[in-house]
Nucleic acid binder design. Structure first.
Length: 800
RNA sequence: GCGGAUGUGGCGAAAUUGGCACACGCGCCAGGUUUAGGUCCUGGUGGGAAACCAUGCAGGUUCGAAUCCUGUCAUCCGCACCA
């Protein structure tokens, strides 16, 4: 009788007592650092999606230990954040209390899965001993000019009453609560991730990340090369624009300034239709980014009367418009419009009846009439001395001209914007900055800077953090001059603590530095980091940025944190939809463990489908894995006294070792399990298993189903535990010595199969095939035109 | 619109990377054990009477294509007026 409850409890208690999965900091063994994204402990508890990633790296970690690596597989809690705070407000309790409860629940659930975490290194981002170092890193960023308070356009979630990073805005809505997001001018703490944009792109090349992750990060950073060009305005000011097409400078039809661009105020006294312009500005401010993009087809704008721009290349006067299809926070917030060679400008020019002069002509057709913007390759026309040049040549010439005339230069721009690093909420790390009227922003010296106790966690109506009501916390003395000063009341965003957590695992109790130098040297970089695709442009990018900064200030020994990244697919509900409370299709892992046990649950999650693709949950299908584990459990009943592997199983078992070993490395857990199911079936059919056969089978299955394998190991009288065994080797020669089944085709159609030795030579093999009865008959009276022979695989006779 | 991915039995999916399409599992069918079965065991299970036909669709390359190329359709994910 397979009493999984008893067995699993027994082994979990054993692991708790003996701590066999503890990583050693000063070991001579080769190290292996495997990392999962540490969970956000929500009050709902674990989701069946969580274990997919955890079990996968648990399997890899367990295998590595058996391969004699010193393995670090740690766990912790990313516990600051909005959901907890919202829950706290709703239920009128302290977020700290909820966090503690949620962590206890998560911990319980994770332990019931038999994951081989090193629990002695558990960390918690809300622990002052931890966030002391989050604040410390912020201080270093500040000292190095990478953290600064800036007046910028920010995304404001009207429901969370909180600033959001660009990465947190999904289709104009808040990532967390789906509330409406509007644009607002606000003075904000930002981290200058854009200074690292180029390096964040370049260093991707050296990393073992999935191609789609690299692509997504590159696209998000969005590098584009072009030119910055200054246009004199008739009123005396200058209008600076960014373009990737400087060679089209003679095709300019008009200029556009984004409605939020401050230059509009600077030239306002020269504008003759100011009222109309201001009205347009107001309307544009009402629209959020999402609404703007919804109106892609409906371009709007107003001509700014009374001012003209002057083309620095040919001195021509150009009308200026303001239109919200130009974004204020990309480039310079203004463009030169070349309708003939830009689709958006074309649309606008058509709508407002503006000229569309053509300056690039496709090489094969001349004097064509444009019916839409031409963005292809060609030669320059109507462009003075640029005429006849290719686009590339003209680009160079124009930039040379601009530099010579001090009217511009080449320029690289990134879509990536600086990381808005402040939230007007309570449950986060306080930003350790004191604002002194005399000295400006000064760093707090006594870290950690703790959160003040407040009565009410609700954000204030004026959009400030509830902390700002705590006057005895806010008001302090300037550490520099000793005068009255105020503390910053914003807290850090959720992404702060997770940007460096993998460093703290190396030395979680260190009070003098974020981690010991030797430990950093030994363990870094993370060897294998698995996580979700959804963090590609958030956490993964942010933590690469922080790590590079820490490398630059000589805190960490390498410039990239994660050597290898893999991504798991989501687990969907039975009807192929995301699991969610509102759909009512959430599967609770506790129920599954209760009914089937952790081992079956683990095996099922790994068997469910390709690890990297989404898979839909199907509780019925678990029974296949349940049968498999039960059959394995019962192997004990047919265990023979005989020691060695039987001859007829030698090759099969060697092949299985190879397949399971390789599949685990390639995240093909589903086929590894299929291999084991197959092997089990074949052995069982003989109604007998030898001790060595069982031994190998147990070791291969152990990473997937650690409890039941330890149990059978012990029951069978093997020494020590499975976890202490060495991962088995396979004999490649033996595998290759197996007779091959060779398919014989005629004109590509399968006729028969023959068995042949693996080292038989080609002509012999062909003769063997030709002399096969069936083939002899088929070839009768036919002329062989071609003989194709692929050793070990196939023979094909092409006949007439 | 741009970027990425996927498309194979009733279902989840395999296919040594150009060489036996559908391994393994679910479900289903038949038989057996059982007082009973949401248990266990055994066998069967793409279509077609067959030659043959089948990997979203249409072409192409090849002795040979799920796999490579061209076009096309569908679904999913990410970004979205980025000049």
């Amino acid at each position: 009788m397979y009493d999984f409850k008893k067995i699993e409890k027994k082994w979990q208690d054993f692991w708790k007592a003996t701590q066999p999965f503890k990583a050693i900091n000063n070991s001579k063994k080769p190290k292996f650092y495997s990392l999962i994204e540490f969970p956000y402990p929500s009050s709902q508890g674990l989701h069946v999606g969580h274990p997919r990633s955890y079990v996968a790296l648990d399997i890899i970690s367990r295998k590595r230990r058996m391969q004699d690596y010193n393995v670090l597989f740690p766990i912790g809690w990313d516990a600051f954040g909005l959901p907890t705070e919202n829950y706290a407000i709703k239920n009128n309790v302290h977020p700290k209390e909820i966090t503690e409860k949620s962590i206890a629940k998560f911990k319980n659930q994770l332990q019931s899965l038999g994951l081989s975490f090193d629990w002695s290194r558990e960390i918690n981002t809300t622990d002052p001993k931890y966030f002391k170092w989050t604040q410390w890193i912020f201080s270093r960023l500040f000292e190095n000019g990478l953290a600064a308070k800036e007046e910028t356009l920010i995304n404001w979630c009207t429901s969370c009453k909180c600033v959001l990073a660009n990465e947190e805005v999904i289709s104009g809505q808040c990532e967390r609560c789906s509330g409406e997001v509007i644009q607002k001018q606000k003075s904000q703490w930002v981290l200058k991730i854009t200074k690292y944009a180029q390096r964040l792109i370049d260093d991707l090349d050296s990393l073992d990340y999935p191609e789609r992750v690299k692509q997504q990060q590159k696209n998000w950073i969005g590098k584009s090369e072009g030119a910055l060009i200054k246009f004199k305005i008739s009123s005396g000011q200058e209008l600076e624009i960014f373009t990737t097409r400087p060679e089209t400078i003679c095709g300019i039809s008009y200029m556009v300034i984004a409605p939020e661009n401050k230059i509009l105020d600077e030239i306002s006294q020269h504008i003759t239709n100011l009222e109309k312009i201001n009205k347009y500005k107001q309307e544009a401010a009402k629209k959020n980014d999402f609404q703007r993009s919804q109106m892609v087809k409906e371009k709007t704008g107003v001509e700014i009367k009374g001012v003209l721009a002057i083309n620095p290349f040919n001195g021509k006067e150009i009308p200026i418009f303001t239109a919200d299809y130009v974004l204020a926070n990309y480039g310079t917030g203004a463009i030169m419009a070349v309708p003939a060679h830009d689709e958006r400008d074309w649309e606008f020019a058509v709508k407002y009846n503006l000229p569309k002069p053509m300056v690039i002509c496709p090489e094969d057709s001349q004097n064509i009439e444009l019916t839409k913007a031409f963005t292809g390759n060609g030669k320059l026309i109507n462009s003075g001395f640029l005429n006849g040049l290719t686009i590339e040549e003209a680009k160079k010439k124009v930039i040379e001209f601009l530099i010579l005339n001090k009217a511009g230069k080449s320029q690289v721009n990134f879509k990536l914007r600086d990381w808005i690093f402040a939230r007007q909420r309570y449950w986060g790390e306080p930003i350790p900055i004191i604002n002194c009227k005399e000295c400006g922003f000064v760093l707090e010296e006594n870290l950690p800077l703790l959160l003040p106790e407040v009565q009410n966690f609700q954000p204030l109506e004026n959009g400030e953090s509830p902390i700002s009501n705590c006057s005895n916390w806010v008001n302090t003395k300037c550490p520099k001059c000793g005068r009255e000063a105020q503390r910053e009341t914003d807290t850090m965003p959720q992404w702060a603590g997770s940007s460096w957590y993998f460093l703290r695992y190396l030395d979680p109790n260190n009070n003098d530095s974020l981690a010991d130098e030797e430990a950093l040297k030994y363990w870094l970089p993370v060897d294998w980091y698995n996580g979700g695709m959804e963090h590609t442009t958030l956490h993964l990018l942010y933590s690469r940025f922080w790590h590079k900064f820490l490398y630059d200030i000589h805190v960490v020994p390498c410039s990239e944190p994660y050597a290898k990244r893999t991504c798991h697919g989501m687990i969907l509900g039975e009807s192929n939809e995301k699991m969610s409370k509102s759909r009512g299709n959430v599967v609770n892992p506790d129920d599954i463990i209760q009914e089937f046990g952790a081992d079956v649950m683990r095996v099922y999650e790994m068997f469910i489908g390709d690890f990297e693709n989404a898979a839909s949950w199907n509780t019925k299908s678990i029974s296949g894995c349940k049968r498999f584990i039960e059959k394995f459990f019962n192997l004990n009943n047919i265990l023979a006294k005989q020691e060695n592997i039987r001859n007829e199983f030698l090759i099969l078992i060697n092949k299985a070792i190879k397949k399971v070993s390789e599949d685990i490395e390639n995240l093909k857990f589903n086929t590894a399990i299929a291999t084991l199911m197959d092997l089990l079936g074949q052995i069982k059919a003989t109604n007998l298993i030898t001790r060595e056969e069982l031994k190998i089978f147990i070791i291969l299955l152990n990473p997937f189903a650690p409890h039941v394998t330890e149990e059978i190991w012990q029951k069978s009288g093997f020494k020590k535990t499975v976890a202490e065994q060495s991962w088995p080797y396979y004999n490649e020669e033996l595998i290759n010595s197996e007779k091959n089944e060779i398919v014989v085709q005629i004109n590509g159609k399968i006729k028969t199969k023959i068995m042949a030795d693996p080292d038989i030579d080609k002509s012999e093999l062909i003769n063997l095939a030709k002399n096969n009865k069936l083939i002899l008959k088929e070839l009768n009276n036919k002329e062989i035109i071609k003989e194709i022979c692929i050793p070990k695989k196939i023979i094909n006779f092409v006949v007439k």
